[in-house]
């Protein structure tokens, strides 16, 4: 257990880091804009170069906000899954949320091109892809909720979630096999994840969805703490298991499903970040762990986004590869350091 002073110090340190990274993320991009100009645009809304205004307001700030909220959402839903399944390797996608989303997108992108004569990429606006992904993950959520109301053992739900995921992945594979090259590329690019594709109008949907998901999760702190000792103990202390499961699965799906719909599947953040938060705050109490995980999630995804822009280069790397390359060493380091990951969550 840390002292109160130490915890406050950590909070200040993390908040400052988050702020610096957020600003740094806005400063960087494929077009070189002098630092002075960026601050001028942000604070005065004016610039001698009108294109700078457009770039910063329509691209860089939305992208930084997307990275921030995606980091919040994925890490918080990962924490919830690790707690409810009491499994350190659980993440936001164990329920099959991303598989469901990818099925939705695959059906839209490749299904249309395969089974109809019309193959127009232009028809598939970004909103259509978002809706398809949302519907796909919504379907999986519905299945999971229906099962969790009937199945007593939580491990059964975990295994069924993984099975759903594998089954949907198989269907997606079949679709990929039969689809034409151009559509296949649209789909593959979607699976690589992108923080830059979210427009301002889409942010107006994404941010409220994430905020609602986060609010629900923050109301579940007491329940999540009770879940730490297992559902039997939680029940013996008066917890309504069905309602709790419903709320946890619902908020997780809302958080992870929204991010996946708008940005594609982004891996490893949800698994790695809760572990980092546990190491930093040395607690399993969600009162500290939940906000801690959230803020560290924002930091890690902003950092990944900065790395993906390859400073000094005009190309952007797929975000999913970066989060994997950042996340995997962290997970390995945790395993070697702790030697007992089985009891981490």
């Amino acid at each position: 257990m840390l002292l109160k002073k130490q915890v406050i110090f950590i909070w200040i340190l993390l908040s400052v880091t988050l702020l610096i990274l957020f600003i740094f993320d806005i400063l960087l991009g494929s077009v070189q804009i002098p630092v002075k100009e960026v601050f001028k645009v942000i604070f005065t809304d004016q610039s001698d170069h009108p294109e700078y205004l457009t770039i910063i307001y329509r691209f860089r700030i939305p992208k930084a906000l997307t990275a921030l909220f995606a980091g919040f959402a994925l890490s918080v839903s990962g924490l919830q899954m690790q707690t409810i399944f009491r499994n350190p390797l659980a993440g936001p996608y164990v329920l099959g949320i991303s598989a469901g989303a990818s099925l939705g997108v695959a059906l839209l992108v490749m299904g249309i091109s395969t089974f109809t004569v019309v193959s127009q990429i232009g028809v598939l606006g970004s909103w259509t892809i978002v809706m398809a992904a949302w519907l796909g993950s919504g379907l999986i959520l519905f299945l999971i909720l229906a099962i969790s109301a009937r199945v007593k053992d939580i491990m059964t739900i975990l295994i069924l979630g993984i099975m759903f995921g594998s089954a949907t992945a198989a269907v997606v594979n079949i679709l990929q096999y039969f689809s034409n090259e151009s559509m296949l590329k649209v789909f593959i690019v979607w699976t690589m994840g992108s923080l830059g594709g979210v427009s301002l109008s889409q942010l107006k949907v994404l941010i409220p969805s994430v905020i609602i998901g986060l609010l629900i999760t923050f109301m579940l702190i007491k329940i999540l703490n009770a879940m730490l000792v297992g559902e039997n103990y939680a029940k013996s202390m008066g917890l309504n298991i069905r309602l709790s499961r419903f709320l946890i699965f619902f908020s997780t799906s809302l958080l992870a499903g929204s991010i996946t719909a708008f940005c594609g599947p982004i891996g490893f953040i949800g698994i790695a970040v809760p572990h980092i938060a546990r190491i930093i705050f040395k607690t399993a109490n969600h009162k500290t762990l939940l906000p801690g995980t959230m803020i560290i999630g924002g930091i890690v995804l902003l950092l990944s986004d900065i790395i993906s822009q390859v400073p000094g280069h005009d190309k952007t790397l797929p975000i999913n590869s970066i989060t994997a390359l950042v996340g995997i060493p962290i997970v390995i380091w945790i395993i070697i350091r702790n030697q007992k990951l089985s009891s981490v969550s």
Binding site: M1, M219, I221, K222, N225, A226, L228, V229, G230, Y233, M237, G238, L239, R278, K282, T283, A284, N285, K287, N338, K340, S343, V344, S345
Partner: peptide, 24 residues
């Protein structure tokens, strides 16, 4: 019950679950 990073006091105070408010 073997949870790393959970303090003895936090575990014991979980027993207050049916007595505390919704936020715990």
């Amino acid at each position: 019950v073997n949870i790393s990073n959970l303090s003895v006091f936090d575990l014991v105070s979980l027993g207050r679950f049916p007595h505390t408010n919704w936020f715990g």
